[in-house]
Amino acid sequence: MTQLKTKTRSQTKIKLLVDLGILIGFLIAMEPRSRGLAVHEWLATSLIAVLVIHLLLSWDWIVQITRRFMGRVNRQARINYILNWLLFIDGAILMLSGFMISEAVMPALGIQLPRNFAWRGLHELSSNLFLILLGLHTALHWNWIVDAFKRYIFQPIGKLFPNRSRKDIAA
């Protein structure tokens, strides 16, 4: 039981770090004009690996809901599941359209692709949609985010200043 608790705790900690990494990486990648196209493309490509880790950490939940989706699942889990699929599909479209208009990653790999106006439009559309879906994904996990931040970021920082915390409690 204690081992299970410790495993869950360390998994939550890793999940929080991975999610923070995804958010920061995504925010930088969303602004290609500020850091240049090469940084945008390589960073976005490397985000695939981090997203795979994110999915691996939620694997049990994904399998559980996939099996029970047609049966008894609470409403929030069902909405969450559909939203996650939309996010996954949109992410795949975003990556593909990005590869198709790539000017750094694909040429570096020696791949030349024909230019097509549709891919650029699709890339912009899917990136805007991804931002909205990411907002919804964050909103649905807000309680988890707040709990994890309290436990793994605010509490350890609070422990660094024990005197001040005691004063605050006394006040």
Binding site: L27, I28, M30, E31, R33, S34, R35, L131, I132, L134, G135, L136, T138, A139, L140, W142
Partner: peptide
Amino acid sequence: GLLFGAIKNIAIIGIIVAVI
């Protein structure tokens, strides 16, 4: 540019979170 863009995107996410 990065800072402005990041703040704008965080604001969009924040508004969606607040609305829900």
